[in-house]
Design a protein around this nucleic acid. Structure first.
Lengths: 109, 109
DNA sequence: AGATAATGGTTTGTATCGCAAACTAGTCTG
DNA sequence: CAGACTAGTTTGCGATACAAACCATTATCT
């Protein structure tokens, strides 16, 4: 029942999702469907600039969609997960499970 | 029973361990106690240069110890986990478990 | 009304990172 | 002794993560 280490399992982790800031964004989106920039900014504690660039990367990778509109007179940026984004997150989760299996548990080491 | 997202849980992931190449190295070390450079090179598929620099970073962070000696006339580099390294890996594993909890499971989404 | 601050972001600058190519030092082979 | 192999380290470079600076607009103060 011991799990051999498959290097590919660890090295194949999707870097776009693996980055903590982006993983956080995706995770929030997965449960909230649609969120606003400012909400995410406060929730995450990320700087606006950092948040903005991670968003752009996720959008470029097709994992999220960004919609801009006005609420009253103020600009408003909303994000939501695309189908590809949901799949990427699910795949990543599966990869993580695989990684967890090879991580030695302290009490059986 | 729902788990709220704690941004800090995700953003606090130890980057030294989080990097896939290094996570692989640490994981191998955790189960093998002591391994040689060339063994790790073949197992991982990492280039020598890449492997070498990740090793240096792990050593600089105190997570592994690097011992150099000669086997016959050939140089030989051996790595093993330090106590701090084992702790860091265990802590990371705990962090990952926390992250897994907030990752939505596809079938209950 | 004009200056000042606040809102909602994007762009730019930079230090660091991950990676492989090139290099180093020594050993073996023909 | 020339060339190839072993065992790595150093160097160079493109990409990354991050915050500071900036931009456009709206609200507030005097």
């Amino acid at each position: 029942m011991s799990h051999d280490i498959q290097p590919s399992d660890v090295l194949a982790l999707d870097r776009l999702v693996h980055e903590p800031a982006r993983l956080l964004i995706l995770t929030v989106l997965a449960s909230a469907k649609q969120v606003e920039f400012t909400y995410l900014e406060k929730l995450s504690g990320l700087s606006k600039g950092n948040l903005s660039s991670h968003m752009s990367k996720l959008e470029a990778g097709g994992l999220i969609a960004i919609k801009k509109r006005f609420r009253g007179k103020r600009p408003l940026t909303e994000l939501n997960l695309t189908a590809a984004g949901r799949k990427a997150l699910n795949d990543y989760r599966q990869q993580l499970i695989g990684v967890m299996q090879v991580l030695p548990k302290p009490d059986q080491d």
